[in-house]
Design a protein around this nucleic acid. Structure first.
Lengths: 190, 190
DNA sequence: GCATTTACCTAACACTTTTAGGCAAATATC
DNA sequence: GATATTTGCCTAAAAGTGTTAGGTAAATGC
């Protein structure tokens, strides 16, 4: 009987694609086994369990997202960089909704520390280099940016802004404008 | 054999409590049946299916959240109202993580239209009455606020801001400061 | 060509979701 | 208060997912 040539990587990729097609929570060990026309138990030689598989998909998504972010902010600064960074998030979530959901999977601390999540944190800080923010305000700003990007993208993909004027694209652009203005005029503590 | 006295409402409440204890995605028809010491099939007289049950929990959470928001902004305006509104979100998500997750469940359009989600939208707009924003900028601001609140709370509950200085509480306060400043100086289109 | 490793399989069990049909408790009717 | 009806919870069963244990055949190394 010919072998299917399974690998943890191939399973992860198939899982990521499946996630984008039918949603991350529909990604199941069984579904992937079906995809490779293989018995479910066979996957357990390559992946510890369902949670392990999902974690791998999450890590893949984080890497992809970080790569795109890095490419976007290279050679840009200030508002240009901010807008490019923001667009990467939104575009990625729209192109790869399942992967994006996967990227939000809570990881255990060691896994998170070894993930591309730390690159994200570094890049967000780098983004703020164009603005004049000392600690601890810089950290507050990092958290604000993360919240806005994730929050917007998550509400948008849940359908929150569709079927209502104005266009989501327009709001996105204006929100980036507003964030830029805010970062340039960050309020001092009262 | 004595009856358990099941109701859709009682199932929903039990589901909400269970969600807060073990997470919304661990809320299963079986788990609730166990809680009432009843056979699983019995629940299907009160609830159409698993999705129906989860939707009911989501609607409950949306109502609770809207009630709290309404109480928080009553008699307040400007930054006071903004801060109170923001705290409701954060506090609710911390007190009731499972319910909060439930509140983010994507609803089909008719269900959403009949839900407390519309109250939320109205209240967020009311919040902006203290600031001087004409359409379409007001809508952009509504979407920004929703994104920040949801994004922050969601990242925080995923553990994003724990174990790192400064304190999450401090960031939250400063972010509200920053949003207030931003709304008072909303940038004009370039 | 043989030994070893490895990949995939069968078998089995536990759990969740859902449907169909039955019996007894609660409620309504006389 | 006895009877009829409704309703609530039951048993039974099927289908799908997750996981483990142990077997066989294919690939790999010598």
């Amino acid at each position: 009987m010919a072998r299917a040539g399974l690998t943890a990587e191939r399973l992860t990729r198939a899982g990521a694609e499946l996630a984008d097609e039918v949603g991350f929570d529909q990604v199941t060990v069984s579904a992937i086994a079906r995809h490779f026309d293989v018995k479910v138990a066979s996957l357990y030689s390559h992946v510890r369990n369902s949670h392990d598989l999902k974690t791998r998909i999450a890590l893949l998504a984080l890497e992809e997202l970080a790569d795109r972010c890095a490419a976007a902010i290279a050679g840009r600064a200030g508002k240009d960089a901010l807008a490019a960074f923001a667009d990467v998030y939104r575009d990625y979530a729209r192109e790869h909704p399942g992967r994006y959901t996967a990227a939000r999977l809570p990881l255990d601390p060691e896994t998170a520390a070894a993930s591309a999540g730390v690159r994200h944190a570094r890049m967000t800080r780098a983004l703020l280099r164009g603005y004049d923010l000392a600690e601890p305000e810089q950290t507050h700003a990092v958290r604000l940016l993360g919240s806005v990007f994730h929050g917007y993208v998550s509400l948008e993909s849940a359908g929150g802004f569709s079927h209502s004027a104005p266009d989501s694209q327009e709001s996105w652009a204006r929100i980036v404008d507003a964030l830029d203005a805010l970062l340039r005029n960050w309020p001092t503590t009262p």
